[in-house]
């Protein structure tokens, strides 16, 4: 899980062009949106696309849990693991 957390942090940094930020600067429990890292709605769409490309995860945009999945790195990691288990 820790490795996946770091991988997701790096994915966010690369995809969203967060210059000068390293995975160490992103706390796993900190909010990604609404304060915290300060990402916005376009970032959420971009991140969804990056997850699809890297992990073949298709996100159900009607899901009521969507905000929860993207709330923090920890939540996102759990979400990616659960989706990968579905694929397997």
């Amino acid at each position: 899980m820790k490795d996946l957390e770091i991988e997701l942090k790096q994915l966010i940094i690369d995809t969203l062009e967060l210059q000068g930020i390293s995975p160490l600067d992103i706390a796993s429990e900190a909010p990604l949106f609404d304060g915290g890292l300060g990402l916005d709605s376009i970032d959420a769409l971009e991140l969804g696309l990056a997850l699809k490309k890297k992990y073949d995860i298709h996100i159900d945009t009607d899901s009521t849990e969507l905000f929860n999945y993207f709330a923090s790195i920890k939540n996102l990691t759990r979400f990616v693991v659960s989706q990968q288990q579905k694929i397997l």
Partner: peptide, 9 residues
Amino acid sequence: EDVSPSRFS
């Protein structure tokens, strides 16, 4: 390929 939302905007 999928279109990047930020590039599109």
